[in-house]
Amino acid sequence: MDKNSKIAFLGLGSMGAPMARRVAAAGYPLTVWNRSAGKSDGFADVAGTPGQAVSDADVVITMLSDPAAVREVVGAIAGELKPGAVLIDASTIGPEAVHEIAALLPAGITLVDAPVMGSVDKAAAGELNLLVGGDADKVMPLLELFGTVRRTGAVGTGAALKIVMINAIVNGVALVAEAYQLADAYGLPEDLVKQSLSTSPLAGLATRAAAENAFYQVKLAAKDVDLAARAGDLPIARAVHDRLTSYSEASDEDIAQLVKHFRS
Rank of each mutant, 00 (worst) to 15 (best):
D2K: 11
K6I: 04
G13N: 02
M19D: 04
R21I: 00
V23P: 08
V23M: 03
Y28G: 12
Y28Q: 11
L30K: 03
T31G: 03
K39M: 04
V46Y: 03
Q52M: 10
A53G: 11
A57L: 11
A57N: 07
A57H: 04
I61H: 13
L64P: 01
A68C: 03
A69D: 12
V74A: 02
G75L: 01
I77D: 04
I77L: 13
I77N: 00
E80Q: 10
P83H: 13
G84N: 11
I88K: 06
D89W: 04
G94F: 09
P95C: 02
E96F: 04
H99K: 03
P106N: 07
D121P: 07
A124F: 05
E127Y: 09
L130M: 06
L130G: 02
L131E: 01
L131F: 10
G133C: 02
G134A: 08
P141E: 05
R151H: 12
T152W: 08
V155R: 09
G156V: 03
A160M: 08
I163W: 08
I169M: 14
N171V: 14
A174Q: 09
L175C: 09
E178L: 00
A179I: 15
Y180E: 06
D184C: 00
A185I: 01
S198E: 14
S198F: 00
A203W: 06
A209L: 05
Y216L: 05
K223T: 04
A229E: 08
P235M: 04
R243V: 14
L244R: 03
L244K: 01
S246V: 08
S246M: 08
E253L: 13
D254I: 03
K260S: 15
K260D: 13
F262H: 12
S264D: 15
